[in-house]
């Protein structure tokens, strides 16, 4: 499903302040696998996730996701690929504070301009599933951390993606909410989603949910 072949990313290549964020990383993740991406902060986890999503381009190497050469895709098509195949769950939620729950959830669908009926039914079923239906019209800034996390998950799932990329998903959650998050990932795993969780939270380290771990340190694979 996700295939990395000696991927390197050097920021400001050639300049004095050149910084090697990733150095010859290679691995493969199969469909339906839940993979943990371990490492201290600054080890290159976030960079790796953004390369898999096609948000950035590697300096060397090749990334193939779902049969598509993401690293070779012009930005225009990389965005289309993200829209159809990738769901993102961010560390700081990254929701838009002045929009309501519903409006935040449909943000990924706005460019496709699909009919209102379909859009509403998709958003509503997700909100029901994650128990935030009654907060539909509430503005994000009035929500608790746990509720925001659910909104983020709904937004990540609205396009029905095959791959979920989570970047430090539990950094802003307390123990109960973190556990709740793991439960939700568990259900998503049973639905056959491929999930990559980048974290240094020890909570995840010995969970049965995790199929495999990949550890990074200073951009290198250990």
């Amino acid at each position: 499903m996700i295939h990395l072949n000696t991927v390197s990313k050097i920021f400001n290549a050639g300049a004095k302040n050149a910084f090697c964020a990733l150095d010859a990383v290679s691995f493969e993740i199969k469909q339906g696998e839940v993979v943990l991406l371990k490492g201290a902060s600054g080890s290159g986890k976030s960079t790796l996730l953004s390369l898999i999503a096609g948000l950035g381009k590697p300096t060397h190497g090749e990334i193939v996701v779902g049969g598509k050469h993401i690293s070779k895709l012009p930005d225009h098509f990389a965005a289309l690929f993200r829209r159809s195949s990738i769901g993102f769950i961010f560390q700081k939620f990254n929701l838009i504070p002045t929009l309501s729950v519903f409006e935040n959830i449909i943000v990924p669908l706005i460019p496709s301009n699909i009919p209102e009926k379909e859009l509403c039914s998709r958003a509503n079923s997700l909100m029901h599933r994650f128990g935030i239906a009654e907060k539909r019209e509430t503005l994000i800034k009035h929500l608790s951390g746990g509720e925001q996390q659910r909104v983020v998950i709904c937004r990540a799932l609205i396009n029905n993606p095959r791959i979920l990329l989570c970047d430090e998903p539990t950094a802003n959650l307390d123990a109960t909410l973190s556990y709740e998050f793991v439960q939700m990932m568990q259900t998503l795993k049973t639905e056959g989603k491929t999930i990559v969780i980048a974290t240094h939270d020890s909570l995840f380290f010995d969970l049965p949910l995790i199929d495999r771990s990949i550890e990074l340190s200073k951009g290198k694979q250990i």
């Binding site: 953004s50 999503a53 948000l55 930005d75 225009h76 965005a79 289309l80 993200r82 829209r83 159809s84 990738i86 993102f88 961010f90 990254n94 838009i96 943000v107 990924p108 706005i110 460019p111 937004r155 396009n159």
Partner: peptide, 15 residues
């Protein structure tokens, strides 16, 4: 940050 979010969730530059 907003532009970053939008791009991450699949908006094209054109969008």
């Amino acid at each position: 940050k907003e532009v970053g979010i939008l791009k991450a969730v699949g908006w094209q530059i054109n969008d």
